[in-house]
Amino acid sequence: MSTIGGASTPKILVFSTHNISDPGIDLAGSAHLHYSPTVMVISLPCTSGIRPEWIVYAIQKGFDGVFVATDGEECAYLPNCAELTSEVVTRAQTMLQERGLEPQRVKMAAVCSVCADPFVNHMREFAESLAPLGPSRKVAA
């Protein structure tokens, strides 16, 4: 089994939300849809509460990409959640650039509570787009 350890599989940190996107990610597992075990999830109440610093921190600590699984229009807390989250992502991208890291390492997309297939597709596509960038550690450490 060589999916792990081999540098070819990017390490992805996902920020999800308790009420909407995390259940979607759970559903992918319940349906035994496979994605790489180098994908790891931190669930929060709402993605508009992410500090851009956390995204940068994750990349500097060795994650190759950070995926923000937002609620899109479904957020029960904030009507402008998508807007606030994309502001966080933009700030994180700027911070990455300032540190010589590629802004493409952060991606945001809406994942709904039954979006099992879309989540797995997102992970595959994101991993594919990260592969040409190589490991993030080449710059940071």
């Binding site: 089994m1 999916t3 792990i4 990610i25 759970d26 559903l27 992918a28 597992g29 319940s30 035994h32 849809l33 496979h34 994605y35 790489s36 075990p37 180098t38 999830v41």
Partner: peptide, 13 residues
């Protein structure tokens, strides 16, 4: 849900 069931194809991972 976010580990054993999603990675039934990769026990090491």
């Amino acid at each position: 849900e976010q580990c054993s069931w999603a990675h039934t194809d990769d026990c090491t991972g």
